[in-house]
Lab assay of single mutants.
Amino acid sequence: KAKLLVLLYAFVATDADTICIGYHANNSTDTVDTILEKNVAVTHSVNLLEDSHNGKLCKLKGIAPLQLGKCNITGWLLGNPECDSLLPARSWSYIVETPNSENGACYPGDLIDYEELREQLSSVSSLERFEIFPKESSWPNHTFNGVTVSCSHRGKSSFYRNLLWLTKKGDSYPKLTNSYVNNKGKEVLVLWGVHHPSSSDEQQSLYSNGNAYVSVASSNYNRRFTPEIAARPKVRDQHGRMNYYWTLLEPGDTIIFEATGNLIAPWYAFALSRGFESGIITSNASMHECNTKCQTPQGAINSNLPFQNIHPVTIGECPKYVRSTKLRMVTGLRNIPSIQYRGLFGAIAGFIEGGWTGMIDGWYGYHHQNEQGSGYAADQKSTQNAINGITNKVNSVIEKMNTQFTAVGKEFNNLEKRMENLNKKVDDGFLDIWTYNAELLVLLENERTLDFHDLNVKNLYEKVKSQLKNNAKEIGNGCFEFYHKCDNECMESVRNGTYDYPKYSEESKLNR
């Protein structure tokens, strides 16, 4: 008799109507990190870190770059004969040098303040090359056809396309004075040089004057150069050297050249137009028929994500570079809930034993079982409120962090190594801060989002509990077992918050 009662009780308990509160689960393989956990499985997430590029040089917003090819900045601007293909260059979106560009200054020497000139050019998007001192009329008392084997072109001695090597005419090199007034309405880049012979005999042979000088002056520039005559090792078949100089001439300003020898005179100059998204990159990537809004030396990035880990040097509207390998923000729920887990921000989770793959029309909802059958029903209101809140948060985070910009490298010469090392340390410090901030932001927001979901499920549970009161009992896994019969209409009233407690209280009292 006792065995019969136990079996009867078990049958009745199993047959009781139930309603459970749960949440969506799926077959997603997404994982995120939080402050407290690593690799948390979630139903949905968004990636904030771009880690792919196309490996190509592309047009930037429809404008092609200027590819210097086998030449570098120095060779292009001075007019190395091997860089003749660059003479027609007028406009570009950015400038590309190759790491091993070999054609710079063909006659050995240095372009002074080269690093600063590169910085200036990094904001130039177009130029006009014009004859600042016409070759045939500007130097009537001097020979202007100086050439050298060091600047050979097609097997013949030649010289820079933008400079003139002035030497004596006959047996004399009379003092020369020439000036140019900038009437271009924009900055003009003027380049010139000073020749330093290897011996007094060479000085006399070329310029006749043993104590020659070169003077260059404008409103913002004033220097006097004296040739340094000295024996030097042979470089590119030359014992002599040429140093090259430049200045930016403001609109309306005048530049005056005065010399008694050794002047490498300007022939062509450049009127410059600035462009905020221009820059110089060093890259071996090849040019393709493609378009982008962000270019790196590795390749083009076409992404609206706020961060990238491809390269710190970028041109155009680019994500911020960070050292992170993963920045994924959760938008959905835990896919593998932890039992009795309390989140960092106070939300209680884990009283549900598992997510439901059968509930596909919402994030949170119900599963019921009664004599009429069983089924899932999503709670659309709480789901939609959660979707709206999380979507707004993700968009806000992306908008705040998605300050796209150009980031170019800084140039230092060989004598500025300590400054370069200090600059690298400062840049590394800023990069570490950006990386830390980005990672911390994602970790915190992921923790908040998961706790937010847990709290929403808990609130749904409490909503049902407050309606049923003692007409049902909690069975410990997020479910309630009714003390009365609850048909589909009754189940719907529980879900929509209109459950009639008094209607079922007498039946429940008897069954309790």
Rank of each mutant, 00 (worst) to 15 (best):
G55Y: 03
R223P: 00
V124M: 12
N183E: 08
I229D: 02
V149H: 08
N178F: 14
E131L: 08
L272A: 11
K3P: 13
D84Q: 13
L68Q: 02
L48T: 06
G62Q: 10
E82F: 09
F276A: 13
L48R: 07
S218V: 12
G275C: 11
T29L: 03
Y107S: 05
A89F: 13
Q120G: 01
K59M: 08
A41L: 01
C151I: 02
S158L: 03
T226Q: 08
Y114R: 05
G104I: 01
L68E: 06
T43M: 08
Y244T: 07
E131M: 08
I19R: 02
H24F: 01
S172F: 13
I63T: 10
L66M: 11
G55N: 10
Y244P: 07
S278H: 13
Q238K: 10
D30Q: 15
E277G: 13
E82G: 14
N243M: 12
C20W: 14
Y173S: 02
G104Y: 10
L189P: 03
N100K: 08
V181F: 10
T43F: 12
N183W: 02
L248W: 02
R274W: 03
P233H: 07
I264Y: 04
N39W: 07
P65D: 08
H142T: 15
A271G: 07
L249N: 00
W192A: 01
V46R: 10
Q204K: 02
R241G: 01
F144A: 13
A105T: 06
S152Q: 14
R236F: 14
V214M: 11
H53T: 15
C58T: 03
I73W: 04
A212C: 11
E250Y: 11
T143F: 03
P251C: 00
D51H: 12
L60E: 10
V149Q: 15
A64T: 10
G109T: 06
I95F: 09
S52G: 14
T98R: 12
E50D: 12
E250G: 13
A271W: 00
N222W: 04
L36E: 06
V214C: 07
V194E: 01
T34K: 06
S278R: 08
M242D: 05
G240A: 04
L189Y: 02
D110K: 10
A231S: 10
F257I: 15
N220I: 00
F225C: 13
A271N: 00
H24K: 14
S152A: 10
S28H: 11
G75Q: 04
L49T: 03
H24T: 13
S122R: 06
S126Y: 11
G62V: 02
E250A: 14
P174V: 08
G252N: 03
N26G: 07
W92I: 01
A231P: 12
C58S: 02
L49G: 08
K156M: 14
V216D: 08
T34P: 02
A41H: 06
F257R: 00
G279S: 12
P81V: 03
I63C: 08
V12G: 10
A41Y: 07
P197S: 07
